[in-house]
Design a protein around this nucleic acid. Structure first.
Lengths: 237, 237
DNA sequence: GATTTGTAATGGTTAAACCATTTGTTGTAA
DNA sequence: TTACAACAAATGGTTTAACCATTACAAATC
């Protein structure tokens, strides 16, 4: 019900004050905090305490420290890095397996494709088809271009997430891929035939999106991610 | 391609050394690190530098500090808290709307229910039915028990997430609700009829899970969350 | 035996000084 | 005038030493 009321620590109060200032928009990304020596005077704390607070804010991804004259704490534009790092820790601790992540990805990509099918504008479809054309060319050039092909595949999924208009799906896309890609890069070597299968998948998904068949897009996307993952699992043996 | 090679900072080296020790399993959750004064001697750094490193490790969720005699840094069992906090920060910073979150929740609950339908054991079904019985009683007692009813509703969704066996869904459940509940608590006041509708929804979902009809469970869960959200949106006006 | 008191270990905080890095300026030579 | 070198100042990084606040445990007391 309640959380620990451990608020005797001064640096935590400093963290909160600065964090709230940033989150309230009073300090925008790119702006700088006063120097440590100024801040310590403003907050009436010692430099050591202030620096402990700065370390916490830095780890949270809210600020970044620059050295030298004119240096100091710069407010950061928030990114997925912190989420990714903590998720990577979970994975390394083996609380979350690659299988769990990919299973989750199947669900997300299915849902994203269904929503995209409902919402795609003609311009969106044109963009998707342009990406598909790139994928077709890489798929035709053979296994040497598997890296480029996978990149375009990722671009297509990213575009679908954008079409949903829901930033939650964009965030998840980045988080999932940042933690999955390293495994793919290690284990995934697609054969010519597998690349063509994947290309066919993508074409079918985009076709379903264009025809606004949400349920069909969902099923195709789920099967596509499952197949993609299947390649990797076989390599892993 | 490359990451910043900013490795002049001593406390970062300290963070890495301790983090690797923990992640390598040489320090298990519950075990304690040496005291600050011992550590500073072992690592040949000043106490201030060491404490900055400890703040980073603390923020990462790897350790927790206890006060007094026998106090010090205790290695933590890793949890989803760090992921949730950083995701919550992302949500707050980007000002992700409630609509975006609930739309995402529709997809997740649908997928979770479908997976649960595929994987639920007889024991799982018995547990779900017990929760459903609780929900039935609260729904029958009228609007005074809407808070308790919503709590059981949440418990049922949590149980479904557990049945999937995928910790990613468990983590998301907590993250989403940590960020959504405050809105519900402000705006949601269900009438008798609405509680009964929700109860019927839950019964139908659990029924579909028991009959292992994944697709039906998915559609029912999606509709259920949408309806739930609809109540709130109407209140919000 | 129960309770109070003392004590020592440990994290939390402060202060002052110095080092290392970076930027801008100033001076000097081509 | 321009290019470059040297210097100066601001700022984060680090060290040291001291003291405060909290806590567990032991000793003393009732």
């Amino acid at each position: 019900m309640f959380k620990a009321a451990k608020q005797t620590r001064i640096f935590q109060d400093v963290v909160e004050q600065i964090q709230e200032t940033i989150l309230a928009g009073k300090l925008m990304p790119g702006e700088m905090l006063p120097s440590e020596r100024e801040l310590k005077a403003m907050l009436q704390v010692s430099r050591g305490t202030l620096r402990e607070a700065l370390r916490v804010l830095e780890q949270k991804g809210l600020i970044e420290i620059k050295l030298g004259v004119g240096g100091g704490a710069v407010v950061q534009d928030i990114s997925y890095d912190r989420v990714n790092e903590s998720l990577a820790l979970l994975i390394r601790y083996q609380k979350v397996s690659l299988q769990h992540l990919t299973e989750f990805r199947v669900g997300v990509e299915g849902r994203v494709s269904a929503l995209a099918a409902e919402r795609a504008t003609p311009a969106d479809v044109i963009h998707l088809k342009a990406l598909l054309e790139q994928a077709r060319q890489f798929a035709g050039k053979g296994s040497d271009f598997q890296k480029e092909f996978v990149e375009v595949d990722k671009q297509i999924h990213l575009s679908l997430a954008e079409i949903t208009g829901n930033p939650v799906y964009l965030s998840l896309h980045h988080t999932v891929h940042d933690n999955i890609d390293q495994y793919y890069e290690t284990f995934l070597f697609m054969k010519q035939r597998e690349m063509e299968e994947n290309f066919t998948d993508l074409g079918n998904i985009i076709d379903a999106v264009e025809r606004k068949h949400a349920d069909e897009a969902r099923l195709l996307a789920e099967a596509h991610v499952l197949r993609f993952n299947h390649y990797m699992e076989n390599r892993e043996l």
